[in-house]
Design a binder for these strands. Sequence first.
DNA 1: AAGAATGTTATGTA
DNA 2: CTACATAACATTCT
Length: 264
Amino acid sequence: MPEGHTLHRLARDHDGLFRGQVLRVSSPQGRFADGAARVDGQQLDRVSAYGKHLFYEWGSGDVIHVHLGLFGKFFAHPDPAPAPRDTVRMRLTGTAHAVDLIGATECTLTDPAGVAAILARLGPDPIRRDGDPELAWPKVQRRASPIGMALMDQSVIAGVGNVYRAESLFVHGIHPEVPAREISHDQWLGLWTTLRTWLRRGVRDRVIITVPRAELGRPRGPIGRGEALWVYKQERCRRCGTPIRRWDLGGRWAYACETCQPRP
DNA sequence: AAGAATGTTATGTA
DNA sequence: CTACATAACATTCT
């Protein structure tokens, strides 16, 4: 489910809801991260996101590292929260709200050194102010493998997932199989700028929208998940009508309009 | 009820 | 060291 904007959204929500509160952190059946009892009753100092990683920083100096993987989710409960279902990995209980974490691939106790180690293997994150496309550029330039793989490689650029990959390559007219090293510097900066804009907008909207409302013919009203995309999970290209090709690229589905994005 | 889904990592082979 | 394939793992929804 999550791409980078979702994690930044969650960090903002949870930081706002729980910052400075003394929390009860628990889970049924002892399924919670090893050593998590250490943060039970601690104050939550800060919640931050980098790429698709979430960090819950506690007054004790402990950090809980969360990665949602493909289908991790948080459920918010107003007070009084129901009993957690048995797949809940973590429940944050504040004064008036609780949130339950489900399905995460990673939910572990670490510390600032552990956080640094994780950040060290991530590329720049376009959402962040300090994100720098030039840090990623040498890696892109060196790769013979497809640009569609480089965009999903979190050590090249952090926060991009399958939807943003498909959509950003489409709007720049780049076929996903173009070797990364054949991307021009201008194209790279263009992709970066597009991704930065979309990811930041996604934090606000809580949904990925890549097709402008004018193009959609929907000047107002809410836009649902997957309703405003150019090629991802689409039958036909929204621009030219060509059937969208879908194929496996690095273990994930790639989507492209091979008229708008000519094959290399 | 099988299979898909807005991921990542470890491991094996070339 | 790079490239690529495969498997493992997390859970819910249709």
